[in-house]
């Protein structure tokens, strides 16, 4: 049995603003099906509007799928819960709480039966793991973007969820800081081996972090085009990554896909000529 299964999920909105088309539906994406193994890091890449963040929200339970469903350990997801923590693009830290309290609130909710000292020690452990020492008593407004997202990651990891959902977590962080946090995320993930579903625009980020990368075609009526196995051996660092031939090959493949293959003919809604195939033969088919 699979760990997390996204099963024929579609998202439709009723058309309200156009009289002629009233009653019809606007399809964001259709029939998306894939599975994530326990402990796997899967990233979804696609252009803006392909519905990848919507899909993440459906897995988180913030949004409902129009058809199909998401199954985690044999149970269908209906609402948000502590077994799926989200790391938000906008950080979503409570600005009235200190960095420490932002994490502590989550720990307290995850372990209501713990005494305060245990909650505090557990919180401190994750604060330290994300290199936030010294910033505990600062409010988010007084932290840099990178530090804020470290708090967001500490909050998510501290709950020890079954699935970690990362919604373009580094998009609002400047490029120089981003690299450092990505490597910290790699370290955290290696230590915890959480199951992760991430959504991003950043191809390098996806290759650095992921076991597999799912490619979405352009929306509306986006579809899951293919899932690529990232064959670059772990542990990976950004420095070593650049010289890896696998990295170059996978990167080119994704970029070709994003530039050409993700486009679809508007009239038929069918895929345009596919991206050039990868020379060697890693599993390019969706592993279902």
């Amino acid at each position: 049995m699979s760990f997390l299964k996204v099963d024929h999920v579609s998202k439709l909105y009723p058309v309200l603003d156009d009289k002629a088309k009233r009653g019809e539906s606007f399809v964001v994406f259709r029939d998306v099906t894939f599975e994530i193994r326990q402990g796997e890091f899967l990233t979804m890449i696609g252009h803006s509007g392909c519905g990848k963040s919507t899909l993440l929200n459906i897995i988180a339970g913030f949004d409902q799928s129009s058809t199909g469903g998401v199954i985690l350990e044999g149970r269908e997801i209906t609402k948000p819960g502590l077994d799926r923590m989200v790391v938000f693009q906008s950080f979503a830290l409570m600005p009235w709480l200190t960095a420490f309290d932002n994490v502590r609130v989550a720990v307290r909710q995850a372990h209501p039966d713990w005494p305060p000292e245990q909650i505090r020690d557990w919180t401190q452990k994750y604060i330290d793991m994300m290199n936030l020492h010294g910033a505990e008593q600062k409010r988010p407004a007084f932290l840099s973007g990178g530090m804020r997202q470290r708090v967001g990651l500490a909050r998510a990891f501290a709950v020890e969820p079954k699935v970690l959902l990362l919604d373009e977590p580094f998009a609002q962080i400047d490029a120089l800081t981003r690299g450092g946090i990505q490597e910290e995320l790699v370290r955290m993930w290696n230590a915890t081996r959480n199951t992760v579903f991430m959504v991003t625009h950043d191809v390098d980020e996806a290759i650095l972090l992921s076991d597999r990368i799912a490619l979405m075609t352009n929306g509306p009526e986006a579809e899951l085009a293919e899932i690529i196995e990232v064959t670059v051996p772990r542990p990976r660092t950004r420095a070593e990554l650049i010289d890896s031939p696998d990295y170059v090959r996978i990167r080119n493949h994704i970029l070709h896909f994003l530039v050409k293959g993700a486009k679809k003919s508007k009239h038929t809604g069918k895929d345009a000529p596919a991206a050039p195939a990868i020379e060697s033969k890693p599993e390019l088919q969706p592993t279902t």
């Binding site: 502590l82 923590m85 989200v86 906008s90 979503a92 909710q109 995850a110």
Partner: peptide, 19 residues
């Protein structure tokens, strides 16, 4: 976002109200 976090953390109605 804040309400999403409260929902993720499965806060009760009163805890959500006060925190």
């Amino acid at each position: 976002d804040y309400l999403h976090v409260a929902a993720l953390l499965e806060m009760s109605y009163l805890r959500r109200l006060f925190t």
